[in-house]
Amino acid sequence: MYETLTYAGGVHKHEEMTELIEDLGGFVLQENMLQMDLVLTLAVPLEDVPKIQEKAKQLLGTVKIAPMAGTEIAIVSPTLARHHLPHSACDISEYLRRFGAKDNMIGLARGAGKGISRISEDEKTLIDEHDLAVFALGSFEQCIKDKIHLFEDINIPVVVTGAPEMDVNDLPGADAYVSGLGRIPRRLKRGEDIRALKKLVSVVEDILDQRRRDMAQDPPLIPSILVKTEIENQVPALNDVYSPTPVTSQLDGVRVKLNYEEFHEEIGKVKIYKYTLEDIADINKSKMYDYTLVKLLPESSII
């Protein structure tokens, strides 16, 4: 069992931390370096967390548990145009990243308008590629109720945010509703805004934990964290990808930021222990920039 953590410290001697992670059998999920500051998202065996904390103390850094690390979340707004005030959606995205999530902002092509909002099948498919979706809606109860068609047949867990207090039972298709986050023409910096964001984090963590428990009943043969590492080690083309996360971990797979048509066969031939990736996963074209999407099959569907 792995624990996901976030390490924040300086660049000086940071290789000591990465070497320790490797020695413990852990993985670096994401590395962000900004001038002289370094932020690592990592996963290590549960029993080795104190060793990471001790090393962080030696390097004058900090370590925090990152329960959302290794997940990919879609932040969906009816539109990202200025007239729709996307400030809250942007701040939701930024706040979730503090807790280890890799999130993507998605603005619907025709999502604006209480009576005319629409979502296409391609947009639904793109959202379904994630582990969880947060739909950032508006400030009026009836407007939110009139837009349930945007998420009622999404196949992943859905958290809806809006300004008014509402019962989630009034929103078919939503797994949770968080109030206090509507169309706000400013950054979410006030006390009530921060409390709403903290509530959202708590709700998202609970849903992701439940998904992990459900997956544990019939888990993949190989954890997605290990699949990510092996793809990075065995596919040389990733060295030319400048994205901070050329291979993005999900609960049940990974998103490889290489063109599907060119690289899906090479990715499928990646060896992990005695298995070939194409034998234990579905490898498909992503709706996101034609990337390669790898979804690990549960153990019962293979044996």
Rank of each mutant, 00 (worst) to 15 (best):
V168C: 08
G162W: 03
A109M: 13
F135Y: 00
G173F: 01
R118S: 12
S88M: 08
E129M: 10
I127S: 08
L150R: 02
S117M: 06
C143F: 03
R212F: 14
H83A: 12
I127V: 12
I119L: 06
I154P: 09
R187V: 01
Y95C: 07
R110M: 06
E152Y: 15
I127E: 08
M166K: 06
I116R: 13
P185Q: 03
I92C: 03
G113M: 07
P164Y: 05
A109Y: 03
V178Q: 01
D206Y: 02
V203A: 10
A216N: 10
V158H: 06
D122G: 01
D128L: 07
F151G: 04
C90D: 14
Q142T: 13
L137Q: 03
L181D: 03
P185Y: 05
L197C: 07
A109F: 07
E192I: 12
R213Y: 07
E129W: 11
R82D: 15
K198N: 15
K124D: 00
D103M: 01
S179D: 08
S93R: 02
E141C: 13
I156C: 01
K198L: 10
V160Y: 02
D167H: 11
L188R: 05
I106V: 12
G100P: 00
I207E: 08
D128I: 04
K114T: 14
G100D: 05
D128H: 07
I156E: 05
L200Q: 12
R212K: 14
S202Y: 05
E205G: 07
H87S: 11
F140N: 04
R190M: 11
D122Y: 12
D209H: 07
L108N: 00
R213D: 10
H149F: 09
N155T: 05
S139C: 10
V134P: 00
E152P: 00
A101H: 13
R97V: 07
R97K: 11
I184F: 00
R190C: 02
R211K: 12
A196W: 06
L150P: 00
A89S: 08
G182P: 11
G180H: 04
C143V: 14
K102L: 15
V201N: 03
L126K: 04
D209L: 15
F99I: 05
Y177E: 05
G191P: 01
V158F: 00
V134D: 00
G113A: 11
I156D: 02
I154G: 01
L137R: 04
A176M: 06
M166V: 09
S93G: 15
M105G: 06
F99M: 06
